Amino acid sequence: MPNELDKTDRMLVRALQENARLTSGELAQRVNLSQSPSWRRIKHLEDEGVITGYHAALDRRAVGFGVLAFVMVAIDHQNEESSLNFEEAVCAIPEVVMFHGISGPEDFLLVIVARDLDAYSDLLQRKLHRLPGVRQVHTHFSLQEFKGRLGGLPVPL
Results as ranks from 00 to 15, higher is better:
82 S>G: 05
12 L>S: 01
28 A>E: 03
80 E>Y: 13
90 V>A: 05
28 A>R: 02
20 A>E: 13
67 V>A: 04
119 A>C: 07
128 L>T: 02
131 L>F: 10
107 D>K: 04
84 L>S: 10
126 R>W: 09
59 D>P: 00
137 V>M: 07
59 D>L: 12
3 N>H: 02
139 T>Y: 15
93 I>Q: 07
58 L>R: 06
44 H>G: 00
125 Q>H: 05
137 V>I: 15
106 E>H: 09
67 V>D: 05
92 A>N: 14
30 R>P: 01
68 L>G: 00
47 D>I: 07
98 M>T: 03
72 M>V: 00
154 P>S: 06
75 I>V: 04
58 L>A: 03
66 G>H: 12
46 E>T: 01
142 S>C: 14
82 S>K: 12
109 L>D: 04
140 H>D: 07
21 R>Y: 15
87 E>R: 13
125 Q>V: 11
119 A>D: 15
125 Q>A: 11
56 A>I: 10
60 R>Q: 11
4 E>V: 04
67 V>R: 13
131 L>E: 08
149 R>F: 14
88 E>K: 14
96 V>E: 05
53 G>I: 13
37 P>I: 13
100 H>A: 06
87 E>A: 10
131 L>R: 05
59 D>C: 10
86 F>H: 09
52 T>I: 14
65 F>T: 01
5 L>D: 03
141 F>S: 02
96 V>N: 03
157 L>M: 13
147 K>P: 00
3 N>W: 02
85 N>Q: 13
39 W>Y: 08
58 L>I: 05
51 I>K: 06
13 V>L: 15
33 L>F: 14
47 D>K: 12
152 G>N: 11
151 G>R: 07
144 Q>H: 12
27 L>I: 10
110 L>P: 01
84 L>C: 01
99 F>I: 02
18 E>Q: 09
91 C>E: 15
42 I>K: 08
125 Q>T: 07
94 P>C: 04
103 S>P: 01
76 D>A: 05
125 Q>Y: 08
38 S>L: 12
92 A>K: 14
46 E>D: 03
30 R>Q: 15
7 K>E: 12
30 R>D: 07
37 P>R: 09
112 I>A: 02
49 G>A: 07
82 S>L: 14
92 A>D: 15
113 V>D: 11
70 F>T: 01
79 N>W: 09
61 R>F: 14
94 P>Q: 11
82 S>M: 14
46 E>N: 02
63 V>K: 08
54 Y>H: 04
82 S>T: 06
137 V>T: 09
82 S>E: 15
42 I>A: 04
133 G>E: 08
113 V>Q: 14
18 E>C: 01
35 Q>T: 13
156 P>Y: 10
39 W>Q: 10
144 Q>I: 11
156 P>C: 00
67 V>S: 03
133 G>V: 05
70 F>C: 02
72 M>S: 12
103 S>H: 02
61 R>A: 13
103 S>L: 12
87 E>T: 09
4 E>K: 03
6 D>S: 02
24 S>G: 00
150 L>T: 07
116 D>H: 07
60 R>G: 00
102 I>R: 01
55 H>N: 06
105 P>R: 06
52 T>R: 09
153 L>Q: 08
122 D>N: 10
29 Q>F: 10
108 F>G: 01
63 V>T: 07
83 S>P: 00
145 E>N: 11
145 E>G: 00
91 C>P: 00
71 V>R: 04
113 V>K: 11
109 L>C: 04
19 N>G: 00
71 V>F: 03
